[in-house]
């Protein structure tokens, strides 16, 4: 599904990603962990080209993405993204948020897009909020709308950039539950998170990043109980 080879990225003189190579298979749930500044968000953002790699290769659906010649907008239609701060469009209702891309990017009929959107909203449990503005929603509800919005394009893979970090603790559960449902339905997911319980329960692989390098890549049962690398051990001690 996604192949990354020798990916490197710097911001000025700071090298954020060094020679990252990884492969994500269809229906796999991969959780990226690591201290802040370890490059995990940047890696995620490189995967849908919100951040442009300096070197290396990114292959999505067996297509090597050449930033200059591939239509990145087309690529992004297949790669959904959920942000830490939701980034819902405040001037549109929940429903309008969800149908925005299907109608204006995929040029679907509004009625068709609306029907699909209502199904998605039902899936995230927010049918009754279809016609309210994002401002009237709680953080957890906002994030679930954001998930529905990303799903509306029927992406092949979903990227989650710390989806619960901006939420009040009591609202984390509902978002994680939605993500677990998605994982169970076979969605390919790459998740940056500090929710270790989620990683333990849902992830097929957990990747530990430190200083822009992948230091460990293992099944959660292995990585959490028996971390091989010293950096992983120290990181887990700090947060668990």
């Amino acid at each position: 599904m996604i192949k990354v080879r020798n990916l490197a990225k710097s911001f000025g003189s700071l090298q954020v990603l060094k020679n990252i190579s990884l492969e994500i298979k269809k229906s796999e749930v991969v959780v990226l962990i690591g201290a802040s500044g370890s490059g995990k968000s940047t890696l995620l953002r490189c995967l849908n080209f919100l951040e442009m790699k300096d070197s290396g290769e990114i292959e999505i659906n067996n297509q090597v993405i050449d930033v200059k010649h591939t239509d990145l907008n087309k690529v992004r239609e297949h790669v959904g993204m959920v942000f830490q701060h939701f980034n819902l469009f405040p001037h549109m209702t929940v429903l309008e948020n969800v149908i925005e891309a299907p109608v204006h990017v995929k040029r679907k009929m509004k009625a068709e897009a609306t029907e699909k959107a209502m199904q998605l909203l039902a899936r995230v449990g927010l049918t009754d909020k279809a016609h309210v503005y994002p401002e009237q929603l709680s953080g957890g509800q906002k994030q679930r709308v954001a998930i529905a919005r990303a799903l509306a394009l029927e992406p092949d893979v979903m990227l989650f950039d710390e989806p619960t970090s901006a939420l009040d603790p009591e609202l984390v559960g509902e978002v994680l539950a939605t993500m677990k449902d998605l994982a169970r339905e076979g969605m390919t997911m790459v998740v940056v998170t500090h929710e270790m319980s989620f990683a333990r329960e849902v992830a097929d692989r957990v990747i530990m990043l430190a200083d822009g390098e992948m230091v460990e890549d293992a099944h959660p049962s292995v990585l959490f109980s028996n971390p091989q690398h010293d950096r992983t051990r120290r990181f887990l001690q700090q947060i668990l």
Binding site: R76, F83, E100, V105, R149
Partner: peptide, 27 residues
């Protein structure tokens, strides 16, 4: 307008001009 708005729009496959017109400019 928060940069996240443009990023969210782009992440949904919207080209820059469309994202500007539909998402950033109205706000």
């Amino acid at each position: 307008i928060d940069r996240g708005q443009m990023e969210a729009a782009r992440s949904l496959g919207m080209p820059y001009g469309l994202a500007m017109r539909r998402i950033v400019l109205p706000q």
